[in-house]
Design a binder for these strands. Structure first.
Lengths: 330, 330
DNA sequence: CTGAAAGCGCTTACAG
DNA sequence: CTGAAAGCGCTTACAG
């Protein structure tokens, strides 16, 4: 049997379709008995409203796009998971859009989702976004990006205090007696990337320590590459801060392959605090981002931007997740 | 300026909106000059067709749902990535639906996507799927599941030969001289899970070896738990086959925490062949599933089911990805 | 090849 | 509280 439409339900219930419509969408606007009868008839027929027709007519839909560069990156997977439930709790339906680092894809997704009457969008970029360009895709300021943005543009943002995160890692290593602390970059060109490495360099300077940065490749491969370089050094660092957990995994892997044990020979701290780090060898000490809270806030800010035109920039505090990849210098 | 509609474009181009519609949707049905003029005018106005209105009118859309239990699981993330491009190449738009292991969510997603006129759906289940129930959600046989299905139901499937995969791992370990080979389960109750563990047991029997199975918890936690148990054993196995890579990671982590080195003290082989395994410590030897091909095939089978009602069951061959987590028995 | 009309499945002022 | 009508933005036989 084919799916029944609103007219068939109306006929079966002996009312006009506008009454059926109201019974579903504005229940308080219809007589209780009528409504219950309609709902019963509808349920018996297996009727559900067409979200398509509703969206077309009302020019709004519950679909909210989350645009991420790569779902295979556990950080974004975690973010997607958290935001799916955050969105669901507020009556939205998250739709995950993956750009695969295609520069034009963000615009296409925004355009497409605008056509679906998405009320707003959230973007976790892989490269620095141009707010002016972003605004041109029909969402105006009904956008929140999970990164800083260039200027004081009308786009809300949620980030963590990256400098504070790096400081947490640095201080932890200092307290363990380390003075030869290196940094492995390996993030694409977001503000996030810049903020973290800048924080590392100014911390090194402030403590009168030599800064050693490894900055080739992206992600786990950056870590692996740095591991090879470190293994070949005459006076290698005794501790390394990785720009994120994936970088740290790659680093530890490459070090291990060359007989350098973590944390025995070198301490490593990651950044992100992914659950995956609890199952790495050794379990990874890492600066934790409150991903759940970031996701929740992104939805809240986006709603506020859409409804009242507010633009906010909220900065959350990271904390240090102590596991087993760091130890005293020896 | 608000987004222009088809009528405004028609007016600006001096034609009827049906001609504009044709210029976009059936270009060969309109005079070349007229068409080019329309397209130009439309482009100048920034016009794009409403996918919503199109879907409502034609009762078809390019949206195809991929339903997965957990996007945080790298296997599903990998699958989602591969299928996004496979779908894109064929003119579809993948929409990722995450159930979070909520049993009723699959039905809800199917229902919702049916309402969006999705042409078909693909499901990567976390528990054994009931084909009869699945068919009740409006997709009929326009469904492919990535797992075996119970009976010879009218639902297409794509899987790999799990028994062969386990055999590959087992033979590799045997060749390395291992005779005390354990198995860590830790998958939810799909056919995939059952096929793998059955294969292990029958291989052990066939070779006259003792079967030792650890079967508590799910995913990385199952691995960690097994690691603790193994560390406490009087005569521990010298090699372990993990039901998937996440289980293997957890296992190696727990073993490492107790001073048991892989592969020096025990060899470990995973299952899935995730890219992540290249950055683990040590890099993980694993039975690789051809995820890319599985994704591509899922789309193909689904199309065939939707268009011609064909149902297929294709079984792909895994291979062994040799990395560094296995070594000769000592 | 192009236009006029009907209709996809809903919602929402407007009457009553 | 309920019904009748118009309309969201398209497509597609049907005429011409």
């Amino acid at each position: 049997m084919p799916v029944p439409g609103i007219d068939e339900v109306a006929a079966a219930a002996g009312v006009h379709k506008s009454t059926v419509s109201r019974a579903f969408s504005r229940p308080e606007a219809v007589n209780r008995q009528t409504r219950e009868h309609i709902l019963q008839v509808a349920a018996a027929m297996g009727y559900t409203m067409s979200p398509l027709a509703q969206a077309l007519r009302t020019k709004t839909s519950p679909l909210v796009p989350l645009i991420v560069p790569d779902i295979t990156n556990p950080f974004f997977a975690e973010l997607a998971k958290m935001m799916t439930s955050a969105a669901g709790e507020r009556g939205y339906q998250l739709v995950l859009c993956v750009t695969e680092n295609d520069a034009a894809a963000t615009g296409r997704y925004l355009q497409a989702m605008g056509g679906m009457y998405a009320p707003f969008a959230v973007i976790a970029p892989s490269v620095r976004v141009d707010p002016a360009e972003l605004e041109s895709f029909g969402f105006g300021g009904r956008l929140v990006v999970i990164d800083r943005v260039e200027t004081d543009h009308a786009i809300s943002t949620v980030t963590i205090d990256h400098a504070r995160g790096i400081e947490l890692a640095f201080d932890h290593l200092l307290a363990l007696g380390h003075t030869a602390i290196a940094y492995v970059s390996g993030l694409a060109g977001t503000h996030t990337a810049g903020d973290r490495r800048r924080a590392y360099h100014s911390l090194a300077r402030a403590h009168g320590l030599q800064a050693t940065e490894f900055d080739e490749h992206i992600g786990a491969e950056a870590g692996r590459h740095a591991g090879e370089r470190i293994a070949a050094m005459a006076g290698p660092p005794t501790a390394v801060i990785a720009a994120n957990d994936m970088v740290a995994f790659g680093l530890i892997s490459a070090l291990g392959a060359r007989g350098i044990a973590v944390p025995h020979d070198v301490s490593v701290v990651g950044f992100d605090g992914l659950p995956l780090g609890a199952s790495s060898n050794p379990p990874l000490t890492s600066v934790r981002q409150p991903i759940d809270e970031m996701g929740r806030l992104a939805i809240t800010l986006a709603e506020r931007a859409a409804q009242k035109g507010h633009v906010d920039h909220v900065v959350l505090e990271p904390d240090l997740l102590l596991r087993s990849s760091t130890g005293p210098v020896r």
